[in-house]
Write a protein that binds this DNA or RNA. Sequence first.
DNA 1: CTTGATTTTGAAATTCAATATCAATTATAT
DNA 2: ATATAATTGATATTGAATTTCAAAATCAAG
Lengths: 141, 141
Amino acid sequence: MAKEIQIFIDYLKKKNLKLTDQRGRILNVFLKTQRHLSAEDLYNIVRKNDASIGQATVFRTLKLLCGADIAKEVDLGDGKTRYEHKCGHEHHDHLICTRCGRFIEAMDPEIERLQKKLCRRFAFTPQYHKMEIFGVCKKCR
Amino acid sequence: MAKEIQIFIDYLKKKNLKLTDQRGRILNVFLKTQRHLSAEDLYNIVRKNDASIGQATVFRTLKLLCGADIAKEVDLGDGKTRYEHKCGHEHHDHLICTRCGRFIEAMDPEIERLQKKLCRRFAFTPQYHKMEIFGVCKKCR
DNA sequence: CTTGATTTTGAAATTCAATATCAATTATAT
DNA sequence: ATATAATTGATATTGAATTTCAAAATCAAG
Ligand SMILES: [Mn+2]
Ligand SMILES: [Mn+2]
Ligand SMILES: [Zn+2]
Ligand SMILES: [Zn+2]
């Protein structure tokens, strides 16, 4: 929690930017929420505490948080970009149900290892990846 | 080539739809192109041969081709959805360079196997997946 | 403190891919 | 032929995301 704020401050400094009230408040609210929310979702929550914050700032701050590696974009198939924070959450991928939209968070160390190996084969330096498996969940069968 | 058209006809029949002139012509042009083009890219090419085709039809046909499993949506990180056809191309994933935008097509049977295994663990029936690794390519190092 | 340069912000306008609308055309069935 | 359904393209609309811009806040000297 405090750790994320410090990471954010360091990142901003590196980019010659400052931790403003608005940025701090957006980050705080974001870290407290359930993950996988859209910029608009977050904006609506932030607005309850502080009606003066504009959505442009929420969009901008979410981009910064991704740059700082505190947040991650997630594409769950609906039209809008969603974000999840990494506060206390290991890297994982998603199994997304095409019927009900629910999703499972999963991670396989063996796959992660082979992904790195695959990159090495092409002299490619991996930074991050998205793996999304679409299909039908247990409940929808 | 003829095979894809037959697949398309069968798919359309299943959906109570017909293979029209426009749909046929769009598919033909699409199969002849390099892959990974946007709906607009394809529209511009189609238009050269037949100025009367509307872009709505190109959008609609690309959706149908995805449904028929002849085309596949690809997200290469720019704002727009791109499409690649599967004519003579095995399934593969993408290593995308965040510097220059170039990408490598790659596939690892071992990863594919483990993906299926991962799904089984969650009683999840996979239909398709996206795996995109972002990083820095050989040339950009 | 001033002063001036820089950054940040929020409201509003804009962008742009994608979708919906709709009247006209075409195909199909009886 | 007649009714029904599907298809089309021009156009309008949507909606997430970005850009613009003037005002406000922050900072850096002097
Ligand atoms: Mn997640
Ligand atoms: Mn490809
Ligand atoms: Zn489901
Ligand atoms: Zn590159």
